[in-house]
């Protein structure tokens, strides 16, 4: 496998994948809902994830109508919104975090909060705060290209990567187009459905990751439905990064009142990370 990004890239995502590749390791990407249980504790949770050995952190920006998310992430977003989390609040949290960690951070959210903030302004402010990548669940590349206010200023390209999704339903021609315009890494949605823990992995996962590799040199992260060390280890055999979300979010939901929440999360995540490292 070859990676497109030079090892000296300024972007933390590119640099992390280059390091992982040099070490011959699969990366671990942990998701949590920013602002759950509240924004003050989110920074501590990110640092706990880093101590547990996580290579990338995805921060969910809460939205009132998360239609690609299962019940665990829906409830987390609702808790975060009740606790007062906003997009500017999450950016302030990231800015503060950058004093303490250089772990690559990817924001995961839906169009409307970003739209309300202003797309251009958001790109500038998020990159400035130290966000490395953006994953908008309901912005396919088709619309990104066809709405003037969503077009990116490619002179500035590289400050924040626009992460593209590929699904089991993505046909080959479309896969080639998405891969060609991809940045940072490609996010493969491991099965049809919403986010959430699942008993079994898709049988065709390895073959589908191979199909992506056939058309792109970008790293491939695999997510949606991975929750146990066994599943993570199995996915790590074909992916460049394994994403675990709902299983961690569920722990945060159950232990939100625990004064040692970061410790609880660190101990929960460590075996998941160890399973792939």
């Amino acid at each position: 496998m070859t990676l497109s990004a030079p090892a000296t890239s300024a972007n933390r995502i590119d640099a992390a994948f280059a390091r992982l590749r040099a070490a011959g390791r699969c990366g671990f990407m942990a998701y949590l809902a920013a602002g759950d249980p509240d924004l003050e504790r989110t920074a501590g949770l990110v640092l706990a994830l880093e101590r547990a050995g996580v290579d990338f952190v995805e921060l969910g920006v809460p939205f009132s109508d998360p239609l690609a998310d299962g019940i665990v992430n829906q409830l987390a977003a609702a808790r975060a919104l009740r606790a007062g989390a906003t997009l500017p609040g999450v950016l302030a949290c990231v800015r503060a975090l950058r004093q303490q960690t250089q772990v690559p951070l990817v924001l995961y959210t839906y169009m409307n909060p970003v739209y309300a903030y202003g797309f251009e302004r958001f790109e500038r402010d998020a990159a400035g705060a130290g966000v490395d990548g953006l994953l908008l669940l309901d912005l396919p590349p088709d619309e990104a290209a066809r709405n003037a206010e969503l077009r990116r200023d490619h002179a500035d390209n590289g400050a924040m990567k626009m992460i593209r999704l590929i699904a089991p339903t993505t046909p080959p021609a479309r896969l080639r187009d998405i891969a060609a315009a991809g940045e940072g890494f490609l996010y493969y949605v491991s099965r049809e459905g919403v986010t959430g823990e699942r008993q079994e992995l898709s049988a065709s996962l390895a073959a589908q990751v191979a199909a992506i590799r056939a058309v792109s040199a970008l790293p491939v992260a695999v997510g949606f439905g991975i929750s146990t060390p066994e599943q993570a280890a199995a996915v790590a055999r074909s992916a460049d990064a394994v994403v675990v979300g709902s299983a961690i979010v569920r722990q945060i939901g159950e232990h939100g009142a625990d004064p040692d929440l970061p410790g609880v999360i660190e101990r929960f995540v460590r075996p998941l990370v160890d399973a792939i490292h």
Partner: peptide
């Protein structure tokens, strides 16, 4: 052809639904 009524409409959906 892409579902736009001037600046409105379109296909703002998760990737899984684009091909369907």
């Amino acid at each position: 052809a892409h579902g736009h009524f001037g600046p409105y409409g379109g296909m703002f959906v998760p990737e899984t639904l684009m091909a369907p």
